[in-house]
């Protein structure tokens, strides 16, 4: 009897002991996703310096597909950076899933070659006095049907570029690697945002919903690749006119909130005719305001530490480096996001 009790007690202790996984050395980073800016704004630069960010994932271009043209690049970056003082740039390329659904193997070879060529060309032209490149990151939301082509492309790219290849990893393939495959990369960045289709679930925040996140992270297996983390620090407003979705606005949250009246969680009604960016909001229009605040991020970090087994060194990046989105956070909050992983 005593032995059984002791056994129960010990096993209870062991089971209830939930060890939090830490990242011993966090490498802080940011994603820079803007295509139309020639340079970073003063504010963006100062945040980067204050947070001592030495790594930037910069979107170089996107790839799309058309029957006639095949694979072609769009949204090429206009960014130029001169004072790089030992920052590491990771060129990131966003590839639409249709590219891998439609392409044949031969065109994937060409694609890998083209992607490598264009990355190197831009890097040489736009990032003078920079450190030699060591890593490329591919961003693609692959599906079951495009999996094989995408993985083939990644391998081909690695052999041509001779660099570290990383890719973004959504939570669905993270939870179901046996179904979605494990991409043949050196490391993967787990994207903890855009968990839901923005237009479908009206009661949840499609950028980051904590319950959704937990349901994805709660898996017994650990992912067979080195994981870095990407967290969202952006907010947006979905505008609905006459109950129909019209468009999305990114803007200064505080300024716009003054015009809105809350109807139910996440939903607001417009109280004054105003033009914001190019959108003319009128009285009666509805807005789904999906906001991310520091509290939510901290909750997400808490979940990540609870469920994910990290390596000793890992990169934590925030999406994305944008003056307006950053204005919703203080410097302490931002540095808190990085440091929370090591606490």
């Amino acid at each position: 009897m005593k032995k059984a009790l002791l056994l129960i007690l010990v096993s209870y202790l062991i089971l209830s002991c939930q060890k939090e996984n830490k990242i011993a050395n966090v490498e802080p980073a940011f994603y820079y996703w803007k295509s139309d800016s020639w340079n970073m704004s003063q504010k963006e630069d100062s945040v980067r310096k204050k947070q001592n960010i030495k790594k930037l994932y910069v979107k170089f271009f996107e790839v799309d597909y058309s029957d006639a043209m095949g694979n072609f690049p769009i949204s090429k970056t206009q960014l130029y950076m001169y004072n790089l003082d030992s920052i590491t740039i990771v060129p990131t390329v966003y590839i639409k899933n249709s590219v891998f659904l439609k392409s044949k193997r031969s065109s994937l070879d060409t694609l890998a070659d083209n992607v490598n060529f264009l990355i190197l060309k831009f890097y040489k032209e736009k990032f003078r006095d920079a450190k030699p490149l060591t890593e490329f990151q591919m961003d693609c939301d692959w599906t079951l049907k495009s999996k094989d082509n995408y993985f083939y492309f990644l391998k081909k790219l690695k052999s041509i570029a001779q660099k570290e290849i990383s890719c973004t990893l959504r939570l669905y393939p993270y939870k179901y690697p046996e179904k979605m495959g494990v991409p043949p990369v050196d490391k993967a960045t787990l994207m903890c945002y855009n968990l839901l289709n923005p237009l479908q679930n009206h009661s949840k925040n499609s950028i980051l919903d904590i319950d959704e996140l937990e349901s994805y992270l709660d898996t017994p297996k650990s992912y067979p690749k080195h994981l870095d983390i990407a967290l969202p620090i952006y907010s947006w407003m979905q505008v609905y006119k006459n109950e129909q979705f019209s468009n999305v606005i990114y803007t200064n949250n505080k300024a716009v909130k003054k015009l809105l009246k809350e109807i139910k969680p996440l939903w607001y009604s417009v109280t004054k005719d105003t033009v914001i960016n190019e959108t003319y909001l009128r009285i009666g229009d509805k807005v789904k305001f999906e906001e991310i605040d520091a509290k939510k991020i901290e909750e997400a970090i808490h979940l990540l530490k609870k469920y994910v087994k990290f390596d000793k060194n890992a990169t934590v990046s925030l999406y994305h480096l944008d003056e307006q989105q950053l204005s919703n956070f203080t410097n302490e909050e931002i540095s808190g996001f990085y440091s929370s992983f090591s606490k």
């Binding site: 058309s66 029957d67 006639a68 072609f72 083209n114 060309k121």
Partner: peptide, 25 residues
């Protein structure tokens, strides 16, 4: 029509490899 969209512009060399790609198509 969607397929033709790309060609309603003067883009000849999308991958910037100085090759003439669009006109014949």
């Amino acid at each position: 029509a969607k397929n033709c969209e790309f060609f309603n512009s003067w883009m000849e060399d999308p991958w910037e490899r100085n090759e003439v790609q669009s006109s014949p198509v």
